[in-house]
């Protein structure tokens, strides 16, 4: 497909135009409410957008909701609520988060088509952003990244983006905005698609490490707070519970919420038996799910190499270090 250029000055016009049909989300840095962290928020002005840092919380919460009503029950029966969702355009998604989103799509759109997820996801326009340099804990270069955006933005000299278009809808959109998207012959070569300094993980096949004594190293620091689970853009586990309506106890909702495998409650069965009782067991399970189990089943690693589970771990347990030492 043809490539385009977009001057950063015109980003605002692009957002304004997108806003007509979409809720436009982009990474925003806020010191007052978010402690200086970057979050995906609805924006109406390009000024607030921060592309220089990856988002504190991942994108998945826009599709795989933290709390989803699976159905309402009453004496009349069960009813799945109809979701009215405004289409989303999300700008500034990094390659790692696109990989995670592709994994979530795989699970919730193809493996077990999930009407709740699909309703949120199906009309979404993804606008990716190629970050040039790895942050301290990133290791996406060690991961075979999958997943594509509809539009991909690359930094060009001269305060410009190179715009790659990957879907027909996106092409129609870009071509309809001739004033800001200019056709170009520039192409991104393989070298420029790499992200500098992101090859931290040397051992990609964890298969033989299951009984390695190295797992204990660093795990003593684990607080079992599940920050790694909730910051992870890929984790897709959940809990289900019923919530009765206090005004009429015969009515209520069945609710799905995010779950964290680092918590003891994750494997607790009747009789108070906990299958993965030690912190080591739980930690190793997470890494194995991320790097091995998912790959065995679906062909790609669940992990995207975004490094959030290390960066936002209160005690900064670096599982890459742990694996590399094994």
């Amino acid at each position: 497909m043809t490539n385009f250029t977009l001057s950063k000055v015109d980003l605002n016009a692009f957002i304004k135009s997108l806003s007509k049909n979409f809720d436009v989300y982009a990474p925003v840095k806020d010191h007052v409410v978010d402690g200086g962290s970057v979050r995906f928020k609805v924006v109406s002005d390009a000024k607030v957008i921060c592309l220089s840092e990856n988002a504190y919380y991942p994108l998945k919460e826009l599709f795989f909701r933290k709390k989803e009503v699976l159905f309402k029950y009453s004496e009349k029966g069960l009813e799945v609520p109809v979701k009215k969702v405004k289409s989303k355009a999300i700008l500034g998604i990094r390659r790692c988060d696109l990989h995670s989103l592709a994994n979530q799509d795989r699970i919730y759109m193809r493996e077990v088509p999930d009407p709740y997820y699909i309703a949120e996801r199906e009309k979404t326009l993804l606008i990716g952003y190629h970050c040039k340099k790895a942050e301290e804990y990133c290791f996406c270069g060690s991961i075979d990244l999958q997943g594509n955006a509809d539009i991909m933005l690359y930094e060009l000299p001269g305060n410009k983006f190179l715009v790659e278009v990957h879907s027909d809808n996106a092409l129609r959109l870009v071509e309809s905005l001739k004033k800001i998207f200019k056709k170009t012959d520039i192409v991104i070569d393989a070298e420029s698609r790499k992200i500098e300094g992101s090859n931290r993980l040397q051992k990609k096949d964890v298969h033989s490490f299951y009984d390695n004594p190295g797992w204990q190293e660093g795990i003593d620091k684990c607080l079992s707070c599940a920050a790694c689970n909730f910051h992870c853009p890929s984790c897709y586990c959940f809990n289900i519970h019923d919530e009765a309506n206090v005004h009429n106890m015969k009515e209520g909702e069945r609710i799905r919420t995010w779950a964290g495998c680092q918590l003891k409650s994750f494997t607790r069965v009747a009789g108070e038996h906990i299958f993965r009782d030690t912190r080591k067991d739980r930690f190793r399970h997470r890494i194995y799910h991320q790097l091995q189990y998912f790959k065995e089943r679906y062909g790609t690693t669940l992990c995207s190499g975004c490094g959030r589970c290390i960066r936002f771990c209160p005690t900064k347990i670096d599982f890459i270090d742990i694996l590399n030492r094994m």
């Binding site: 200086g36 962290s37 707070c225 599940a226 920050a227 909730f230 964290g260």
Partner: peptide
Amino acid sequence: YNDPVCVECKLNGNHCLLDEGKICLGPI
């Protein structure tokens, strides 16, 4: 409820106060 405060804090989308250098007893 047997899980630490951190679980709900993360689900509520807060910024970690430990990372801001505060003594937050959430994890325990």
